[in-house]
Amino acid sequence: MSNSEHFATVMVQCFIDAVNKGVDLVPVVADSTSTSKIKPFTEAFPDRLVNVGIAEQVMVGTAAGLALGGKVAVTCNAAPFLISRSNEQVKVDVCYNNTNVKLFGLNSGASYGPLASTHHSIDDISIMRGFGNIQIFAPGCPRECKQIIDYAITHEGPVYIRMDGKALPELHDENYQFVPGEPVLLRQGKQVVVCALGSVVHEAVAAANTLKAQGIEVSVVNVSSIRPLNRDALAHMLGQSKHVVTVEEHNVNGGLGSLVAEVISEQGIGGKLVRLGVKDGDYAAAGDRPYTRKMLSIDSAGIVAVCQRLVSEH
């Protein structure tokens, strides 16, 4: 699509804009200059980037030190290595020490499809949710991505941003205003509520369009703000239907599916929940995006089929 944009490109432009506005922002990479598409930044500011080599633990530790030294430190590398390899540095140096570090998990979920499970991050949301104080966002389109990053840079404290690896089109028009914590209702329908985050929001919207043509009305909620989260607002949206479906390119344990299950049970909302994503005890398949998503039923066809089944059962 003509207005599609890579999130990494959006991210780098946000960094450039921030430095031009006087923010003392320092990107820290682990040989991940191409992954992060950082070249326009290094061309604009040749001496600002810190590259620690292929070493995620020291990438995160160094970022925490830079933050303690007064910088806005932003780490940029592939989400699976950031989350898993430097897990304790994220926990201790960033979260527990409450340092002003922004962690960008690039090419998250199964963005690296055929490269298989070492390169997939299907556990990042659940891990970050286990840490006390880090804010967690998963943008679904370039406009939202930019606004989340602009917010993260000005917010004092740790932030994790789950960034998809493919160019994605817009979900919102130019009037969109990101509000931390607020779930966003993208489609309204009474029969099923579909919650999604990140790039699979587009699958949910496509599914809603298909279902509408079949006479089935579903809501689509974009839960891009995992922490903070206005749980009352989400509960209100979930309470509009007897059926809730969550869609995520992530393990159903600990991610969006678990989060929605918590809200449903804590708020006493009735209805049945179907969690779509990587199943309990499983990994994402190795293959391209359409294949992987089909296997997990998180493509639009899979979401359509689940919604049809739920509606037909009643």
């Binding site: 925490a64 030190g65 030294g69 430190a73 140096d93 020490n97």
Partner: peptide
Amino acid sequence: ELNTGALGHGLPVAVGLALAAKRD
């Protein structure tokens, strides 16, 4: 200055602090 206890965390953070000081 830093919450520690898990070992091997002080030096990477010290590197970041030293780098920030150099640049400033």
